[in-house]
């Protein structure tokens, strides 16, 4: 058992601190509630949901899934590099991660603009209320994750080699992987279910 600089006792084999695992668990419960309500509404209004989902652009969903999966790979490499104290590689991998995040963000903005241009807003019908809420909440998580990644990248030169930096990067990585995992649930729920 090791003790992080914040005073938390953490098993040596456990990536990240107890705090991030607690946060991810709580966040997962919140999103689970949202998904359950979405599914119950889908059962209540099958025609509304089916008609709306036929208008969803599969390419956006798939593209974003691939982008986030790739970014998770870069994050794994960044954590490995931090353990080896390879500063250049840490910064390169975190930059690649940020680039993927930026691609996701641009995709999202383009998709939202397209929907709004078609007159499809959160008030259109229950499906679109969920679409904007679920993907919007996820988008905020992506933006938050990018802020943490920027911080880790900025601090790498000063802090790499320290236990605290490794824990911080692992925490950021865990959060980023969670954000990726969320999208792997959102993608089939929102984009795939309407495909015949």
């Amino acid at each position: 058992m090791s003790v992080s600089e914040s005073g938390q006792s953490v098993p040596e084999s456990q990536p990240g601190t107890n705090g991030i695992w607690t946060f991810v668990f709580i966040d997962m419960i919140v999103f689970s509630m949202i998904f359950i309500v979405f599914l119950s509404e889908r059962v209540r209004l099958p025609e509304v949901f089916a008609a709306a989902q036929e208008r969803m652009t599969f390419a956006f969903g798939l593209g974003n899934a691939l982008v986030l999966l790739t970014s998770s790979l870069f994050m794994v490499e960044a954590v490995h590099a931090a353990r080896k104290q390879d500063l250049a590689r840490v910064r390169m991998m975190l930059t690649a991660c940020l680039a993927c995040g930026a691609v996701f963000a641009v995709n999202k903005v383009i998709e939202y603009n397209a929907k709004i241009a078609e007159g499809l807003t959160p008030a259109t019908d229950p499906f679109y209320s969920f679409y904007y809420f679920i993907t919007g909440a996820h988008f905020l998580h992506v933006l938050g994750g990018m802020v943490f990644i920027v911080h880790c990248r900025q601090r790498a030169a000063l802090e790499i080699g320290g236990e605290s930096y490794r824990r911080k990067l692992e925490n950021t990585g865990l959060f980023w992987h969670f954000v990726d995992l969320l999208w792997l649930f959102i993608f089939p729920l929102i984009y795939l279910a309407g495909i015949n």
Binding site: G19, T22, I26, V30, D125, P126, S129, Y132, A137, L140
Partner: peptide
């Protein structure tokens, strides 16, 4: 800690209330 994280998560989830004035049925 879990109470703190729960408080943060639930507080942020309130953002769904922005949809309320614009819908006349459904979960929002």
């Amino acid at each position: 800690d879990w109470a703190g994280w729960t408080s943060i998560a639930i507080g942020i989830s309130f953002v769904a209330l922005v949809i309320m004035p614009f819908v006349d049925e459904g979960p929002f």
